[in-house]
């Protein structure tokens, strides 16, 4: 068996095994949401803005697409929900910067609170979408 003399030392960093408390989940999802917003929600918003202000026909065509195409309406709804998630976790972050909710228990509570609020918002949006 080959030896590892003078080779680089291994590092243990398996993210699936290391226990991540709820604050850490909140933090990483905030970051992922931010990436999604920049690469998807923002261009999408631009697309919607462009066609909704271009002409009456374009506006109506767009409105028709959104109302009648399940895929597009779900995609748009989801993209804006991700935006809402980033805002909710962002507000939590801003409050912590102001020293509100900095203790471990407060931090856990606010993480769960944000998840609940976002979940309820998502349920509301999707029920309105499909009824």
């Amino acid at each position: 068996m080959s030896t590892n003399h003078n080779k680089i030392r291994p590092v243990y960093i398996n993210l699936f095994q290391i226990r991540l408390p709820v604050s850490a989940i909140s933090s990483i999802t905030h970051r992922l949401a931010g990436i999604y917003i920049f690469f998807i929600t923002l261009p999408l918003s631009l697309y919607l803005l462009y066609f909704s202000t271009k002409s009456y026909n374009d506006f109506m065509v767009l409105k028709d697409y959104l109302n009648n195409t399940t895929f597009l309406s779900t995609f748009v709804a989801f993209s804006f929900l991700v935006f809402a998630y980033h805002i909710l976790t962002g507000v939590r972050h801003l409050l912590q910067d102001l020293h509100i909710g900095e203790s471990l228990s407060a931090s856990r509570l606010s993480s769960y609170l944000v998840f609940c609020v976002w979940f309820l918002l998502s349920v509301f949006v999707f029920t309105r979408l499909f009824t």
């Binding site: 920049f38 803005l49 462009y50 202000t53």
Partner: peptide, 17 residues
């Protein structure tokens, strides 16, 4: 990549509105 994308988005928003 993100700089070009970001600046393009900014430019297009201004042009659009």
């Amino acid at each position: 990549l993100f700089s070009v994308l970001g600046l393009s988005i900014f430019a297009i928003i201004l042009l659009t509105i």
